[in-house]
């Protein structure tokens, strides 16, 4: 099972290393990890996407709490959060495909960031399914390169 953990930490050197060390040392997986400072520059937010059953997630949460700079850990579930990632995708462009591409971009709320004669660079933002579907639809057209930011999540009421 995929789980998204949002971790509030003190903003100090080595925190990401402590977190990633813990994951590798104890054999937990990291699908993606992102980090940045919060409004309060004293703190950072780390978002980790990991996989495991409930027992594993419970251990991960407890182990993370053991790290001194970590203040709070929240599991982000679909009903109480929004979780998106950003993707840049570079695709090969043939004249026949242009209309199809434009249609897809509109449909997915994506943007073209760069246009050259033979390739487009597209930016898409959305949840896991959104990004995956776009990739599947772009594949037949010809994807040259993909880069994803990793997920960021925010709680909601």
């Amino acid at each position: 099972m995929r789980h998204i953990l949002s971790i509030l930490t003190k903003n100090e050197t080595g925190v990401i290393s402590r977190v990633s060390n813990l994951f590798s040392g104890r054999g937990y997986s990291i699908e993606s990890i992102t980090a940045s400072t919060t409004l309060d520059k004293e703190h950072s937010k780390i978002t980790i996407v990991t996989t495991g059953d409930e027992k594993v997630i419970e251990q991960i949460t407890k182990q993370l709490h053991r790290l001194i700079p970590i203040i709070k850990i929240t599991e982000m579930k679909p009903d109480n959060s929004i979780c998106h990632e950003l993707m840049f995708v570079k695709i090969k462009v043939k004249d026949d495909d242009r209309a199809e591409i434009i249609k897809l971009i509109e449909l997915f709320g994506a943007k073209i960031l760069n246009i050259s004669q033979r390739e487009y660079i597209i930016q898409a933002v959305g949840d896991e399914n959104h990004i995956k579907s776009l990739i599947e639809l772009l594949k037949p057209i010809g994807i040259k390169e993909i880069i994803c930011s990793g997920a960021v999540a925010i709680g909601r009421q």
């Binding site: 050197t13 080595g14 290393s17 402590r18 060390n21 813990l22 040392g25 001194i68």
Partner: peptide
């Protein structure tokens, strides 16, 4: 040493 001992101490500082 802070990097080296990260996994085997309760906490460390530089």
């Amino acid at each position: 040493i802070v990097g080296i001992t990260r996994a085997c101490c309760k906490h460390n500082y530089l």
